[in-house]
Design a protein around this nucleic acid. Structure first.
Length: 550
RNA sequence: GGUUCUGUGGUGAAACGGAUAUCACACUUGACUACGGAUCAAGAAUUCAGGGUUCGAAUCCUUGCAGAACCGCCA
């Protein structure tokens, strides 16, 4: 019906002035859930200038030429809104809307989590994990072929320090006197060190480890952590299609070609930036390769090579994204934590200067605080008070975990209130939604016969029908904007309207779905089934199964 | 100091530039021999402050104030 009104409005506008071309996308029609009407459009306000008319006059012209057979009345309201009142007999038509849903089967790459392989996943990774997975579901909902990708940064200093920390533990526990320092602390390092020791026992017979032996050990340790992380994610319903290691990107040796390309565009020079923190040696012999990211509004130019000639993290990251681009996705989406906010400019400008047509976007997830007993829990790696993701999921359950990670806009700070999440009542939205679904199911199960009687079109019933009709609009909007919280909010509000309708039957028995003999009208049946379908689709995108019984 | 984000009832949050700013909690009332009360109904805001753009601003621009994240040749 929304689309029908839209196209009728387009015809009206065209008949008013054929020389003006307004595209269907510019015509906004939305639903009303109060006494003002059932549908509304602002086009008379929006286009009054183009048509050189006062908004109210334009609205009048539109109404005069609008095919009004489906409507009780169409009126001008406020400064120039046009409100439509649907005839009662057409309400149940609003439930049939999903026949020609938008489809786009192009392939999309969504990269998320991509945690450093030097420790277990914790709360901070959890939000990006869910947002990435739900976004993937959303793209799949519209037919896209989605690759969920996990990137492992297994090179660089952090890896050396990680290895050193493991060997330090082995050395001190088994009195081996190996020359390694401790960087990372924590129980998981000790456990990992033990595993490495068990697996490579014979290596430690000699007093010194070769480079090759070190490599074996660190790879084993990384593999172990990555698998553990993937297992944690799998437990919360997240499965990756592709794991990409930084080393495999390095092996492809894309960097020289990339630097050459950027050089051609005048975006690379050799020289010096400020002294790095651990700078050693003389300045003269330390010319590095630098990307001119200030051309794109970045604060500073960024190094592509370090003073020892090896590529920076940034350099390898360009190569990684070039690699992704070359795999021919129509769209690349990254989910990043807020700590990468300042990193976007340099990466996207490098990527865009290489491939101006690239469709690359980043969805940022802000910090999550853990709230318990009404207090924000301070978390610190040093004090060992990091809350591992595994524990969180165990404590609150997958459904709660997934829902609550989605119900705030991704770029706002969020407090995850453990006590609230564990409640089983209205305060917990996911519970409230599931309860409405179970209620609808109980009616369907109690039904003796489906009959062709009429159900009274109360205010509450109309609202619920309209809400169901609105689903397509909401989910499409959520997809266009990469904002998954819109779905969570829709579900909550749909459930609220369902409960309202349910309770209205207390004061108005005609609003009951079932009659005294447990007969259900056809209309009511199609309403309930459609409600279940919409809720199932919405929860499905969030990765949650609806409950038939609770 | 720079870059980016945020500022909405007592609290936590919603709101493609649209009408009377929505939801939950807390607080105050009212509704249960129930199609599952695990619910429903009723009650509160000068949207941080000033200026601008617009028919129309929580939303866009600008100034100020307050808070957060980031600001290595670390990843």
């Amino acid at each position: 019906m929304l689309n029908q009104i839209k196209s009728s409005l387009k015809v009206c506008l065209n008949s008013i002035d054929p020389s003006i071309d307004i595209s269907a996308d510019e015509i906004e029609v939305s639903l009303l859930f109060d006494e003002k009407g059932d549908f509304t459009t602002n086009i008379a306000l929006k286009f009054s200038k183009i048509y050189k008319q006062k908004p109210s006059d334009l609205a009048k012209l539109i109404i005069n030429s609008f095919p009004s057979q489906d409507f009780e009345k169409i009126e001008i309201a406020g400064p120039g809104f046009i409100n439509f009142f649907l005839k009662d007999q057409f309400f149940f038509r609003l439930l049939n809307f999903q026949n020609n849903r938008f489809q786009d089967q192009s392939s999309v790459n969504i990269e998320f989590v991509s945690a450093n392989p030097t420790g277990p996943l914790h709360l901070a990774h959890g939000r990006g994990a869910i947002v990435g997975d739900v976004l993937s579901n959303l793209y799949q909902f519209y037919g896209h072929i989605v690759t969920r990708e996990y990137y492992v940064n297994n090179t660089g200093n952090q890896i050396n320090e990680f290895l050193s920390s493991i060997l330090f533990h082995i050395s001190s526990k088994h009195n081996l006197n190996l020359p390694y320092q401790q960087f990372y602390k924590g129980d998981y390092i000790q456990e990992l060190a033990e595993k490495c020791f068990e697996n490579f026992k014979n290596i430690f017979d000699s007093p010194k480890l070769s480079k090759d032996e070190e490599l074996q050990i660190v790879n084993f340790a990384i593999e172990n952590l990555v698998n553990q992380s993937l297992k944690t994610l799998k437990h919360s319903g997240i499965n990756f299609d592709q794991i990409t290691y930084e080393t495999s990107i390095v092996e492809k040796k894309l960097l020289p070609e990339i630097i050459k390309e950027l050089e051609k565009k005048g975006l690379v020079y050799h020289g010096q930036l400020h002294d790095p923190k651990d700078f050693q040696g003389t300045k003269k012999d330390n010319e590095i390769t630098i990307f001119k990211s200030t051309n794109f509004g970045d604060d500073e130019d960024r190094a592509i090579t370090k003073n020892d000639g090896t590529p920076t993290y940034f350099a390898n990251d360009i190569a990684y994204h070039v690699d992704k681009y070359q795999r021919q996705y129509s769209k690349l989406i990254n989910i990043w934590g807020a700590d990468h906010l300042g990193y976007l400019k340099r990466l996207s400008s490098a990527l865009v200067s290489l491939y101006p047509e690239v469709n690359f976007s980043v969805v940022f997830c802000q910090i999550v605080n853990l709230k318990r007993n009404n207090e924000i829990q301070k978390m610190s790696k040093r004090e060992g008070t990091i809350f591992e993701l595994d524990e969180l999921v165990k404590e609150i359950g997958i459904e709660n975990y997934r829902y609550f990670m989605c119900y705030r806009k991704n770029d706002t700070h969020m407090d995850l209130d453990i006590d609230l999440i564990k409640k089983e009542n209205k305060e917990n939205p996911i519970y409230y939604i599931q309860y409405s679904f179970a209620r609808s199911q109980s009616v369907l199960e109690k039904t003796n016969n489906v009959i062709s009687s009429n159900i009274e079109l109360s205010f509450e019933l109309k609202n619920l029908i309209k809400k169901i009709h609105e689903w397509d609009l909401v989910v499409f909007n959520s997809y266009k904007r990469n904002e998954v919280h819109l779905i969570a909010h829709y579900l909550e509000s749909a459930a609220s309207m369902f409960h309202s309708l349910w309770s209205s039957a207390k004061s108005n028995p005609n609003s009951k779905f079932l009659d005294d003999n447990n007969n259900l009208s056809e209309d009511a049946q199609s309403l309930l089934k459609k409600y279940q379908l919409v809720i199932s689709e919405g929860l499905g995108i969030l990765g949650i199964k609806p409950k038939l019984k609770m």
